[in-house]
């Protein structure tokens, strides 16, 4: 029996490793990057409007690239996929990037998709009044423990010197019932995505809604960005440049109000569960969050700008909350394009 185990254990390990290693794609250092795999952070929806637009309108092809856009999801982590060689580019949130960097991940930020974090808190003005951050005191606030909304809310409370014992945190997931029932006063929500759907539903029930925006309260926590690996950047700078240019140009076009109808069509094609009426509202809000410089004519060219100060602030928030144990100097990992 013991001899059998002695043979079995190394065999099991070898089999496990062979399967695991063979399931990893080619490392980014290899000569071929065709086709390019691009892993999104979430499922196809309005937050990937520019990515989908690039795919539909041949932006990548025009740069001579073949790109597979793959949807993300709750258990998908684009940075891990980059390291494992299963993806060449990905979308990750700033807290993911900073955590990865703090653990030695060779990740580089190429494009900051959102200039304003779409994460806000929805509330019903008929039930609660939130005119300033101080009004959060004694409210039941929904947060996803471990999520970036927790970090944002804790940073906000700290900034406004509101003790965490002065508010009631409520652990939230996908189910909005506690908010509908009034058990929770403020519920974290992506302003450009679910907020439009939930808001429409509540407004149809004559229940007005409002949003508390941490960005307006001075909390600049960076949201989604396009990332790749340092090795990819070093070994294939042209590919990275072409990909980035294609993606940025596609996003600018997608956010251009003159393309609204076609963008809605493209997004609806990939996200058929969301009606065009909803997508049109989502698109307007997404435009304001990605190009927040007044109107599109003035701000379009600034799409994708890496907001260094906001990144540093995000790093500080995570450091203060001990989500990372030491400064990572995030500016070293931000690839600022001319």
């Amino acid at each position: 029996m013991k001899n059998f185990l002695k043979k079995l254990i190394p065999l099991a390990m070898v089999v496990f490793m062979v399967i695991a290693i063979s399931s990893c794609g080619q490392k980014n250092g290899s000569s071929s990057v065709d086709p390019i795999n691009y892993r999104l952070k979430w499922l196809f929806n309005i937050s990937s409007a520019g990515d989908l637009w690039a795919d539909v309108n041949g932006h990548f092809q025009r740069q001579g690239l073949t790109v597979n856009i793959k949807p993300g999801g709750p258990e998908r982590d684009a940075i891990r996929e980059l390291e494992l060689g299963r993806a060449h580019f990905g979308v990750a949130s700033a807290d993911q990037v900073i955590r990865a960097v703090s653990k030695g991940s060779p990740v580089v930020v190429l494009v900051q998709l959102f200039q304003i974090n779409p994460l806000q808190w929805i509330y019903r003005p008929q039930h609660v009044t939130i005119e300033s951050p101080e009004d959060l005191t004694s409210k039941n606030i929904g947060i996803t423990f471990g999520g970036n909304d927790e970090t944002i809310m804790r940073a906000l409370l700290s900034k406004y010197q509101i003790g965490e014992n002065e508010v009631n945190f409520f652990s939230v997931r996908y189910d909005y019932t506690p908010f509908y029932k009034g058990d929770v006063d403020l519920w974290p929500i992506y302003r450009n995505a679910q907020a439009v759907i939930i808001g429409k539903r509540l407004q149809e029930a004559n229940d007005p809604i409002a949003f508390f925006d941490p960005h307006s309260a001075g909390i600049r926590f960076v949201a989604n960005s396009v990332v790749t690996t340092q090795k990819m950047l070093k070994d294939h700078p042209e590919t990275v440049k072409k990909f980035t240019q294609a993606l940025v140009s596609a996003w600018i076009e997608a956010m251009d109000p003159t393309n609204t109808e076609k963008v809605i069509e493209a997004v609806h094609h990939f996200d058929p569960d969301t009606s065009p009426e909803i997508i049109v509202e989502q698109l307007k809000i997404t435009r304001d969050l990605t190009i927040p410089f007044g109107d599109f004519e003035k701000g379009g060219q600034f799409f994708g700008k890496i907001d260094l100060a906001a990144w540093k602030e995000t790093e500080n928030m995570m450091l203060n909350q001990q989500l990372i144990h030491a400064p990572v100097n995030i500016e070293q990992y931000l690839n600022v394009w001319d």
């Binding site: 254990i9 496990f16 290693i21 494992l84 653990k103 991940s105």
Partner: peptide, 19 residues
């Protein structure tokens, strides 16, 4: 077996502590 295999993969593929 599981954890040793994970560590082996980590060092063979030179993966960061994040992965």
């Amino acid at each position: 077996i599981g954890i040793c295999s994970l560590f082996s993969i980590k060092y063979i593929l030179n993966l960061s502590d994040y992965v």
